[in-house]
Structures are given as C-alpha cells and as structure tokens.
Design a protein around this nucleic acid. Structure first.
Lengths: 338, 338
DNA sequence: ATGAAAGCGCTAACAC
DNA sequence: GTGTTAGCGCTTTCAT
C-alpha cells in the first residue's frame, strides 16, 4: 500500500488537515510545523494521490485534447503549442485521436468528460450538429483550435484562411496566370471548402474570370494522391500553370510530379501552398507558403482555455492569429503580398 | 451538480450497487432491472465519474507516455502506435514532453505516478542512474520504447540499430568507398553513440581500415546544422564519399548541401540514413534508408504494457522488432543487403 | 495555527 | 438478484 496523507500525519504528530495544508502551500501553518511535516514527507516518500484530490476538490488539473491525428505534423505542432502552455499552468493532457470519425469524436468527448477533465481543446474538420449538441452539454469550457465553427458558437483560435487564399491566388493572377488550380484536402474539412476554396474563387471573381471546376481537385490529403492527380493533369493540353495547394505534403506531391515529368517550377508552374513545415524547405525549389502559425494556434488556445477554466473575464473568445507568407522559389517574384 | 450514481438509483428505485453493476456490465442483474436502469441513465444523461471510480477501484485506465518531443515525426509516429493499441484496450493516455531534460523526466515520472496511471511508456535518449532509481520506485509497470536500457533492467521494445548500421556501412564499403562519414544526432542519445556509431565502426574494422574521427559528425539533430556541417565538409579535398546518417532530417540537410553545391547523389556521394519518413521519399533522389518500425515500436510497447498491467505471464520483456532497408536512389545499387 | 469530521462518487465485499 | 455498508485518499468547512 502506498503512503497516504494519513501516514504522514501520524508520523509527524499532526492532523491530516495540517499535512494537506503543507502539501497545498497553505500559509496557515507554523513554519516549524511545516518543516517537520516536509521532513516526514521526504522520509516516507509520500506522493499525493491526484485522483483522491480530484474527487475531493472537483478539479483534476488535466485537460483533454482531441485531435484528428497527432502523428500528422500539422496537429503534432499544434499539440506541442498546447502542451507547452499546459505545462506552464501545470495541467496534464489527455490526448486522443479521432481519425476524423464523428462517432469517435462524440465518444471521446464523453470519455474525456467522464474523466473529469477541467477543459477540452478540440480539433476537427467540421463541427456537426450532433457534436455541437454534445459540446453544449459539457460542463467544462471547450476551445476549438484550428477548427472552423460555422455558427461562431464556441471559443475558437484560428487564422484567416480565406483571406490568405484570396491574397495568394491574387498574387498568382498578377504573375500572369489565368488558368489556375486549387488542390485541396477533403472538402469534408470546412476550412478547405468554406475558406481556402472560397478565397481562391473570390480572387477569380475579382479578376473577372471563371474558376474551372475541373481544376478544383479534392484529394485524400496524401502525397501520393496529389502526385498521381498531377501526373494525370500533365497529360492534358490545358493544364493549369499556377497552383494553390492546401498543404505542404500535397504541394510536394505535385512538385515531384512536375519535376519527375521534366517540367520546371516555377518556370512552367508556380506553386503556393499552406503550412510551411520542414518539408516545404527541404525540397527544391523550396515552396512559397502561407505559414500557418501552428504552434501559436495551440499555445493561444491553451492560454484561452486556462482563462475560461479560471472563469476570468475574456474580452474576445474568437481569436484570429496573424499569418505571414514565406516567399521561396516555387513562385517567380519574391515580392511581399501587396 | 452533475448526476451521480445515487440519483440514478433513486430514480430507478434500485440501490446504487445495482446501478454500478449495470454500468460495469456485471451479469448479476435481472434483464428487466438492467433495462429500467439503462433507461434512467439515458434519460438523466448520467455519465460515470472516472475519478471516483479510480479512487475506489485503484485503477484509472490511464497510462502515462513520456516522450522527448511529440512534435518530432519520430515520436509522433511512435506515439500513434501506442495510442491505437491503448484505444483498443480502452486506456487513455497522458502525454508529456520531456525535451530530453533529465530533471523534467524525473518530474514527469513523479507527476504521472501521482496521477495514478496504471502504467507508463517511457522514451528517452538515455536512462541515467537517477532516472533508473526513480523508475525502480514506481509501483506500476514501465516499458521503454525505442530507448536503450544499457543495464537491460526494464521491459524494452526496440530494434537492432547496431546491426543495421553495421550492414548499411558494410554495403557502402562494398560499393567501393573507403572514406566514409557518420553524421549523427547528439551522442547524448545512447542509440547514436552506443549502437549506430558502433555498427559503423565494426564494419570498418572488419573491412580492415580505420574510421577517421574527423568524419564522425555530431550535430544538434537539425536540418540546418547538418546542412552547414556538410557545406564545410565539401570544402575539404578529402571529403568522405559515402555517408551513414542518423535520420532523415539530417540526411536531407546533407543531400541539399551536396546538391546546392552542384555535386551529385549518388554519383559523387552515396547516402544511407535511418528512419524513412515522408521526407526521405519526397526529396530527389529519394533516400535509401533503414526503415525504423516506429508505429510498431509504439504498438508493441503498449501491448506489452497491457500484459504487464494485467500481471500476465510475459515470455520475454526485451523485444527487438525487425527492420528492413528501403533501397532508393541515394545509393548506386539497389541490391538487398547480402 | 491546528484538528475533527463530513463528504466527493464510486467499487467491492458481504449479507440477504 | 439486490441492497447495505465500509472504505478509497484527499479537500474543506467549522470549531477551537
């Protein structure tokens, strides 16, 4: 049996209440007593039982993080931002992968709530009505990170994907292209369908020419799928000459398809993508990218969550983080966005 | 106040013991009663409190995972393997980053133990004596994943890095090289210093020529550091012509240094690296790699941990997973290792 | 400054 | 098959 607060109390000739005070840094303890208790704690190797503490205090200093797939760099980076701030505020993290399955998401939400987490950071492709319902029922704060909440109902930390897509597309158009493609991950992801794609379209609209629906490519978000899609594209005689890509991995697939087929980037094709992970810097030419502030998305989400858990006043719980564009060699001109 | 088992009991006109039985799937409940209770649970939206359950049962169905940096693909992949098997056995995961700081590792171990995790999976560059002491004191099983335990004291799941390094180096020597380099991450990582480096040296010994200590390069494990190191190397007139590299990221740094300086891989330099993440496939030429079975390392570790937590008989708690070599274009011949 | 005692919500004997 | 009851190891009033 492990050492309990009771053992310490007995050994130190004080009540368990006093031991509890010492452990919790309550100032109402005579320095002498504190010292004595601390010595016993050390000697006995007492380690407070967080589960008992959680039951008594109704706080677990643990938060839940639900993420589509923590092994993807996108979410891995984001989670690291969460983790660092969580550490700073002394929270532990229960991390779960939903694999984007809505039933899993609901299950995990239930599961985390059952574990009495003090708050949840949630990432998902889309907040479905059922999920929304479930989230409303939660008795702890939930923050959406890098996730679109179409109803603007929950606290959210995100960036202006639509604007970024619009500006990037506009830049490509200014570079002389009139035949552009948008290669995306699944449109089940709201950010792809409702933000990036829309920005892409708006730039077209403004420029006065139409988006060719054949050149809106929905992939399964893998390197290989993008590679194959673009190999097929290259066989057409009207292949687009500029490409806005949803993320690094897809962009590298396209880049390699282009280069393996002896075409050149940026001479034959210009590419701008989202994310800018190491992958975008490691390939040649390096990829011009809208840099998604992944780490900060996570860090700010967690910071917001701490405030919510503390019931602090929060001036604004829909936060948009700034992004920047990293101009590299997959585009011809290295001018900043106008 | 949330709904408790007591509320359900009252509402269903049964005792809380019966509700507990229903919730826990105990067969000793009349089907009729079960149905009634289930209906009330549903109606009231009762959700069992896992903290209370944990206190009463002394099991939390939560395990701790301590990892140097979950945002690195290496550990992200590995953690995903852990997570999937954990889900399968209905465990939650508390995930923490140690950033390889020994004091943090000790702290986190204490912290997780305090949270009453049922077991721990630990990843680290090196098991120091203090850490070892701490791990011995733990009252729950601990499995080391992808981590060298020089004393072979704890359950471990890993692969034969030394052998792989030896075979890869041997292959490079067979390809005609006599001037080879080993570019490594920090030697504070046991696997680098005690396994890969040793394999590299053994192949030299066997071939009858000496390792040039100047060509054992210890980097800080970043793309940029490797890139810079190799740029300097290229200015020497005796630069090595074959390179064994500790991981993909470093290898890509070297590859780019070589190519940016107008040399060719594999004509001027041959490269074999460890890991084979997407990065190794995305660059041109693609990198010949010793494929580390990251996902499986995690999955097998977790499976082993479940057995240990269940106090099942385990035939062997030092597991070595098989690896394979992916022959790509950074080496001249694509023959399998003899 | 310290102690006594009542829970927190559940599990697990034990009794019927 | 079901109920009663004693904890699990803490926190937290409330006294003193």
């Amino acid at each position: 049996m492990a050492i309990t607060i009771y053992d310490v109390a007995e050994e130190a000739n004080v009540s368990m209440a006093t031991v509890s005070r010492v452990v919790n840094g309550n100032p109402n303890v005579k320095p002498e007593t504190r010292k004595k208790v601390l010595a016993v704690i050390e000697r006995l190797g007492y380690r407070p039982n967080a589960v008992a503490r959680g039951l008594a205090s109704k706080k677990t200093t643990t938060i839940g993080v639900i993420v589509p797939d923590a092994s993807k760099t996108f979410y891995a980076e984001l989670s690291r931002g969460i983790a660092d701030i969580a550490t700073m505020y002394e929270y532990n993290i229960i991390l779960s992968n939903s694999d984007k399955r809505q039933d899993r998401e609901v299950e995990l939400l239930e599961d985390h709530l059952g574990k009495q987490v003090d708050g949840i950071i949630f990432m998902s492709d889309s907040i479905t009505p059922q999920l929304r319902e479930e989230m409303r029922r939660a008795n702890v704060p939930i923050v959406l990170a890098g996730t679109l909440d179409a109803e603007k109902e929950f606290p959210t930390v995100n960036m202006e994907y639509e604007e970024a897509a619009y500006l990037a597309t506009k830049k490509l158009i200014e570079n002389g292209h009139s035949n552009l493609a948008f290669v995306s991950g699944p449109f089940t992801r709201d950010i792809n369908r409702l933000c990036k794609k829309v920005g892409f379209e708006k730039a077209h609209e403004e420029a006065g020419f139409a988006v060719n629906p054949e050149f809106i490519l929905e992939t399964d978000n893998t390197y290989d799928d993008a590679y194959n899609h673009w190999c097929e594209m290259l066989e057409r005689d009207n292949a687009p000459t500029a490409i806005l890509v949803s993320n690094d991995e897809l962009a590298v697939g396209i880049l390699n398809a282009i280069r393996d087929n002896k075409f050149s980037v940026p001479d034959d094709f210009e590419i701008i993508c989202f994310e800018h992970s190491l992958l975008a810097r490691a390939v040649r030419p390096q990829l011009t990218s809208v840099v998604i502030p992944l780490y900060d998305l996570g860090a700010v989400s967690m910071r917001l969550l701490t405030k919510l858990m503390n019931k602090e006043e929060v001036e604004e719980d829909k936060v948009m983080l700034p992004y920047r564009v990293e101009w590299r060699a997959s585009t011809k001109e290295k001018n900043p966005l106008a």
